[in-house]
Simulated scan of single mutants.
Amino acid sequence: MTASHAPDIRNNCFFARSPSLPQAELRLADHSSACYGVHSHDEVSFGVIDAGSARYQNRQRSHRIGTTATVMMNPGDAHSCNPDNGEWSYRMLFIDSQLIGELQAEIFQCQGQDYLSFPGPLDTDQQSYQAFNALFSALQQPDTGMAESLLMDYLALRYATVAPLNKEVMKTDTAGVRQVREMILDQLDSNLSLDSFASETGLSRYHLIRSFKKVYGQSPHAWQLDQRIKTAKRLLREGESLSDTASQLGFADQAHFQRNFKKRLAITPRLYQSFFI
């Protein structure tokens, strides 16, 4: 999280509303010994275990789960999940079912129901765990475009077995990709939305994301961040201050800039600049 969105951890856990998607709520439990009776949620909910093991019950079936396992609950699913012994650490996402349904309709070109149910209550695939990590991190940041992109990617992964992608969605639209690339480069300091990209190209947001990733290996918003960091390196070498660099390139604040810089270069922007000034 940014400095202004640092988690307020109390009793080894915290709850937070996502600053990028208000329909999403995050929960983290760190070395907690808490236990839960059978209950349900109004939201679509899913989560991962980061440490320890637990007994997970959902849809009248019991599972023993460990580190990196992903659990999934549809709205109204009666479930419980409790540690086998002592403490455990886990993270959860609770997302409004209406938003999930809208994104599913956009991704899979399916209409006529509120939302697609999870194909199963449990997944132990490492790819699912990694995708959850990326989404959980993005939902703690103020970048709505990045959060939406990763949420759609995650839903496409989660529901692929019950709603295969439409063949039209699988096609790469290179003309649309070029348009988006030019938009990003022309407005590098602007936080362009997926809606603005879709409006400019005439493509659905998810079709656009898939096409862009096929060409550049990243979503439009991730690619924009890379271009910002490349430009930031030049500005820092020229003596620009960290705060002015962050402001010029459209970062939410200096902490947001520093975090993304270090994530890509494994060095802080201040230390990077010290080699040139």
Rank of each mutant, 00 (worst) to 15 (best):
T67K: 12
S62D: 13
D153Q: 10
Y115A: 04
T161Y: 09
T174I: 09
I95P: 02
Y115K: 01
I65Y: 08
L139R: 02
A138R: 02
E148Q: 10
L99P: 02
Q109E: 09
P83M: 03
L139M: 07
D125K: 08
G86A: 07
G112D: 08
V71L: 09
D143Q: 13
I95F: 13
A160H: 15
E102A: 07
N74R: 00
A69T: 12
T174W: 09
A163C: 13
Y159D: 01
P119D: 03
I65M: 03
W88V: 06
Q130D: 04
Q109N: 11
E102Q: 12
L150R: 15
S149A: 14
M170C: 14
D77C: 01
R158C: 14
R158D: 13
Y159R: 00
S97F: 12
T144H: 11
S89M: 04
Q141N: 14
A163R: 03
G112C: 01
M92W: 12
L122M: 03
V169W: 07
D123C: 10
K171P: 06
S128E: 15
S117N: 09
R64Y: 12
V71K: 04
C81D: 09
S128A: 15
E87G: 02
A160G: 13
N166A: 15
A138W: 02
G76P: 05
D84Q: 09
D153K: 11
S62I: 14
G101S: 02
R64N: 14
I107G: 00
F136L: 05
D143I: 07
Q109F: 08
N74G: 00
L151P: 05
D96F: 13
G120D: 08
N82Q: 02
M92C: 09
P164S: 07
L165R: 05
Q113H: 11
G76Y: 07
Q140R: 05
A131W: 07
G76V: 02
W88R: 07
D96K: 13
S117D: 00
H79F: 10
H63E: 11
F94V: 12
D153N: 12
H79S: 00
E102F: 05
R64K: 14
A131H: 12
N133D: 11
L151Y: 10
T124Y: 06
F118C: 00
Q140G: 08
D143R: 12
S62Q: 15
G145I: 02
S89Y: 03
P142Q: 04
V169F: 08
E168T: 06
L139A: 01
P142D: 01
N133W: 06
G145D: 06
E106F: 12
H63F: 15
D143L: 07
G145W: 05
A147H: 05
P164N: 04
L155W: 14
M72L: 13
G76D: 05
L93E: 01
P121T: 03
L103P: 06
M170E: 15
S80P: 11
G145V: 04
Q104D: 01
P83V: 00
T172C: 14
S117K: 00
L150K: 15
S97H: 15
T70W: 13
G120F: 06
C110M: 11
T67F: 07
M170I: 13
L157A: 10
R158H: 14
Q113A: 06
A134F: 08
Q98H: 10
N74A: 00
I107S: 00
G145Q: 03
R91L: 01
T68K: 10
G101M: 06
P164C: 04
